[in-house]
């Protein structure tokens, strides 16, 4: 999954990129409207995250331009003014959702997942649901089900779980997981992986302190038994 982040504030842009990468998205960054359109044409991302207030071409115009050729790609607007939402919705430019500054990480994640989910549903990526432990993972939904509980998952979560489920009983070392789920160009950082797994466990394990689905193999990696 590839996401285009168009935002003129460098720090916000970088923070959003970090969040999205943590979520398991590939990211393309643009600092203004013109660049956004150029990057979009090059990379053809799956999702676009678009700031409205940009110095050259506004987010509205970028959106309109994108919609001329791609009417399905989900677009998430970022706005500093709540009034602007009127326009986003009112102009029916086909924006899928919006977030208003100042926003929190959780809100961004929730929104981007919702957008991606909707997109995946319509696009029918055709990823089959699979089970891992007592969970039924629905990749297109970015969700996992345990009985009646619904567990929200990120793109990366899904890919990790899919990797583990596909290699049941095998110990997967950190490099393998990294290369598969983060991509080769991602600078490996053992703590990143460990933390991610830790966060994931909190959500999917019944008892995160004694994980049943993702077990740690000391000095080797992780394993699904």
């Amino acid at each position: 999954m590839k996401i285009l982040v168009a935002e003129d504030d460098r720090l916000t842009r970088q923070g959003l990129i970090d969040i999205f990468q943590d979520e398991g998205y590939e990211t393309v960054a643009a600092a203004n409207g013109k660049e956004a359109l150029a990057r979009f044409a090059e990379a053809v991302p799956d999702v676009v995250c678009l700031d409205i207030m940009m110095p050259d071409i506004s987010g509205y115009d970028v959106c309109r331009e994108i919609r001329r050729t791609h009417d399905a790609v989900p677009i998430l607007f970022i706005s500093a003014k709540s009034e602007e939402i009127d326009k986003v919705l009112g102009l029916e430019m086909g924006a899928d959702d919006y977030i208003v500054k100042p926003f929190g990480v959780k809100e961004v994640i929730a929104r981007i997942r919702a957008v991606t989910r909707r997109h995946a549903r319509t696009q029918k990526f055709g990823e089959e649901p699979f089970t891992i432990g007592d969970l039924e993972v629905l990749p297109d939904e970015l969700r996992a089900l345990r009985d009646d509980d619904v567990i929200e998952l990120s793109v990366r979560d899904v890919s990790i779980l899919k990797l583990l489920a596909g290699n049941r009983g095998k110990v997967l070392d950190r490099d393998t997981i990294f290369n598969t789920c983060w991509g080769l160009d991602y600078m490996p950082n053992s703590r990143t992986l460990d933390q991610h797994i830790s966060q994931l466990r909190k959500r999917i394990e019944l008892d995160p302190k004694h994980p049943a689905i993702i077990t740690t193999v000391h000095n080797a990696g992780y394993r699904y038994e």
Partner: peptide, 23 residues
């Protein structure tokens, strides 16, 4: 409105930091 952008960044980075800090 101008305040909103730095505020976003502070909050966002604080939260990102929170994720990275050990329990």
């Amino acid at each position: 409105h101008e305040l909103k952008t730095p505020l976003t960044n502070i909050r966002m980075y604080a939260e990102l930091l929170e994720q990275r800090i050990s329990e």
